[in-house]
Design a binder for these strands. Structure first.
Length: 201
DNA sequence: CGACCGATCGTCT
DNA sequence: GACGATCGGTCGA
């Protein structure tokens, strides 16, 4: 298993990175509690040119500042007063690209995930959807700005291979306010994967 | 199934 | 003061 490094995140094409993150692992180790899952759904947010991005038109605030930081940083955003959404910051410093992790297939530490989500048994939804991913992985807004190059939260490649035919691109979820950008095919899912959230194609 | 709705609060205007 | 990069439940067909 190989941790994804700076060179992976530093690249310019956030849409390509979002596609490549399918099949990779998301791992957290808080206080020695290991949880991991395979990424099965992502969305690219293409910086200042993207109406769906918090950084659209160069909007730079205390909250969005993390996206303007260097590649390989976690951007965590609190949504609807309830949910935490975990993103991976890509591209160079001052270019606010990010990839939202929308769903994972749980692998290790399922008992811990159940505890965090208040469930008694795993089902096909409890790590499906960005709010559920962060909840199961124990990610909160206090982690916004954390480096993904360290050992507490990071992404990794375990050699899992996906055929191109297994990858589907669709419009992003919940960004109708983004006008024409709402139609861009920036959401990537693994075809027919049971842990994909919402629409399956 | 799909449509609708309430919860709940940080962030920006 | 309005508004979400959501979720899970309910209701009706």
């Amino acid at each position: 298993m190989k941790k994804l490094g700076y060179d992976f995140y530093r690249r310019n094409d956030v849409v390509k990175i979002a596609r490549e993150l399918l099949g990779k692992l998301l791992i957290t180790k808080w206080n020695g509690q290991l949880t991991s899952g395979r990424i099965v759904e992502t969305e690219a947010y293409n910086g200042v040119a993207d109406r769906a991005s918090h950084a659209f038109n160069g909007r730079r605030t205390a909250r969005t500042e993390v996206m303007f930081g260097d590649a390989g940083t976690g951007y965590v955003y609190f949504c609807y007063g309830i949910h935490h959404l975990f993103n991976v910051v890509t591209n160079a410093k001052d270019i606010p690209h990010a990839v939202l992790i929308r769903a994972i297939e749980p692998l290790e530490g399922i008992a811990v995930m159940l505890q965090r989500t208040g469930k008694s048994e795993p089902n096909l939804r409890f790590t499906s959807g960005p709010g559920n991913v962060a909840k199961a992985m124990g990610i909160h807004t206090v982690h916004s700005g954390i480096s993904l190059l360290g050992d507490t939260v990071f992404l990794a490649d375990d050699g899992f291979l996906l055929d191109k035919k297994e990858i589907i691109a669709t419009p992003r979820i919940g960004v109708d306010y983004a006008l024409e950008d709402a139609l861009l095919p920036y959401r990537f899912i693994i075809k027919d994967h049971p842990f994909v959230s919402g629409k399956k194609k």
